[in-house]
Design a protein around this nucleic acid. Structure first.
Lengths: 202, 202
DNA sequence: CGATACATGTAAGAAGTTACATGATTGT
DNA sequence: ACAATCATGTAACTTCTTACATGTATCG
């Protein structure tokens, strides 16, 4: 018997849903225009290796194009086939900026530290060191909280399982690494900030 | 018919495709029988938090049941509703062991360090310290290689982007943490191993 | 000549998320 | 009375993976 779906059927008005891969591509295209193959290579060659399959990249690019966030400029590549050279559009730039402008929320951070790092890595585009520092501070505080929680779990886990305990140790060491990195990064950003301002003053 | 190919080894002969979540559940159920709700709680409460949604856990459990890897024992929980208490079956135990017995392959490790940690955390079940050490050694070597590759990328990235560089630093620090942890874990396992053997000799 | 790099795609499906539905029991 | 916890599930959707198809150009 089919359920009488009463609510939720009118969600058409906002086509602005962009996936993480979408933002990753948007950021890369903003930094320098490229075709799908070149973008894919970035994922293959760098630690962004998560999203590398053609079955993910090409559909994602088409979706961005359909949303008007990038524009294609069909040229002929080194092969006879037409190659689509992508550039970011004005709405694309706005969408990307809006995404970057958001301070990370706790749930987001807990959900994926990597995704936060991706967003952070694009923050050059905002050119706002104060925001970057704020971003990192929020990030660090949440990760620290995660680390403290994990400590409680570790305590409860005493002697339950050797390998389980070791795995938790690894998780803990990792969280600590994120915290330390964030601290160092904040310090570096602050240093640069003051250097900039003193240069401005001079 | 996209999938009729020979997959090199005919391990199970059954349609034995088990997802990562499937193995995670299988391992938990092996450690102690539980119902879906309790298993879900584990994911919510611990760093295995990845797979916590009911829409993932319940279908996965049903699939494992259909594959005969776990057996359900319908009792009445604290509520009036029947609660399915799951136990691992003999084939389930065999499947889990076969999974644990595999040394991690390079592609697997590169694909997800977390997945490797999950597998490692269940290695108590094998009770084979020599294998655990081998597991960690392979893991560490691959992670070290990843770290060296990343160094090359970092060098190429010099001065290209401040935030990009910082993000790469984080990735590098993380990989190093994995390497250090693996080294420590290997040492601890070796210590225990020699203690065991000397106790056996005595 | 064969392999590899360039370049784009599709078809089929595995897997997970969100958001809802159900319903009893216990606590406030 | 209302909320939370226990306990199980479904429907619709999005996303990514796997595996293939299609070509040219270039290098050894």
């Amino acid at each position: 018997m089919p359920r009488a779906s009463k609510k939720k059927s009118s969600v058409g008005a906002e086509p602005s849903s962009v996936s993480t891969l979408g933002y990753a591509l948007l950021g890369l295209v903003q930094m320098s225009p490229a075709n799908g193959y070149q973008l894919r290579r970035v994922f293959v060659d760098t630690p962004m290796a998560r999203y590398s399959s053609p079955g993910a990249v090409y559909p994602a690019l088409r979706k961005l194009k359909a949303q008007g966030l990038i524009v294609a400029d069909v040229t002929l590549g080194k092969t006879g086939r037409p190659a689509e050279h992508y550039q970011i559009s004005r709405p694309g730039r706005a969408t990307l900026r809006a995404w970057l402008r958001r301070l990370p929320e706790e749930a987001e951070i807990r959900g994926s530290l990597d995704a936060m790092l991706l967003r952070f890595s694009y923050l050059d585009l905002l050119d706002d060191p104060a925001f970057s520092i704020q971003f990192l501070t929020v990030f660090r505080d949440v990760v620290r909280a995660m680390s403290q929680q994990l400590e409680g779990i570790q305590a409860a886990m005493r002697d339950r399982s050797l390998h389980g305990r070791l795995a938790l140790d690894c998780g803990q060491a990792n969280l600590q690494t994120y915290v330390d990195w964030a601290t160092r990064a904040i310090a570096e950003l602050r240093t640069r900030q003051s250097r900039e301002s003193s240069r401005g003053d001079a």
